[in-house]
Amino acid sequence: MLSSLVPSPTIDLGAARAKNRTTTRPTTSSAPQPIDTIASPVTRTAVSLEYASLCYNMHCPLGMYIVPSNENLLVWDAVFFVHQGYYTDSILKFRLTFPASYPEKPPVVQFLTDVFHPLISQQTGVFNLAPRFRPWRPKEHHVFDVLHWVKAAFKKHALDGIKDSDCLNKEAFRYHDTTSSFAALATQSSMLSQSSSALFDRDHPSMNGKHRDGMMFRELKPQQSAALRTKLGLGEWDDEA
Rank of each mutant, 00 (worst) to 15 (best):
T88V: 15
E219G: 01
C55H: 09
P138S: 04
S3V: 14
G63S: 04
A241E: 15
L228K: 11
S165I: 11
A16Y: 15
V146Y: 11
K170C: 03
S197C: 05
Y86L: 11
H176G: 03
G63K: 13
S181I: 14
A241T: 05
A186F: 07
A226F: 10
P138T: 05
I120R: 05
A16N: 10
L232H: 12
P61M: 06
Q84L: 04
A226G: 00
G209S: 07
S29K: 10
G125W: 15
S30N: 12
I66K: 02
R25N: 06
E50A: 10
L185E: 04
C55E: 12
K210S: 02
D213V: 13
F111W: 10
N128H: 10
L73K: 13
F144V: 03
T45Q: 13
D89S: 13
D213R: 12
A172N: 03
F81D: 02
L74K: 04
M1F: 09
A198H: 14
Q123W: 00
C60Q: 07
S4Q: 06
S30H: 15
Q122R: 15
S197N: 05
P107R: 10
S90L: 06
H204I: 00
Q223P: 00
N57E: 14
Q33R: 15
P41K: 10
D164C: 08
H157F: 13
L220R: 05
V75F: 01
R21M: 12
E240Y: 14
M1Q: 08
P99Y: 06
M216A: 05
I35F: 03
N70C: 08
N70W: 03
D203F: 10
A130W: 08
M64P: 05
R134F: 15
E50Y: 03
T28R: 14
D114C: 09
P26L: 07
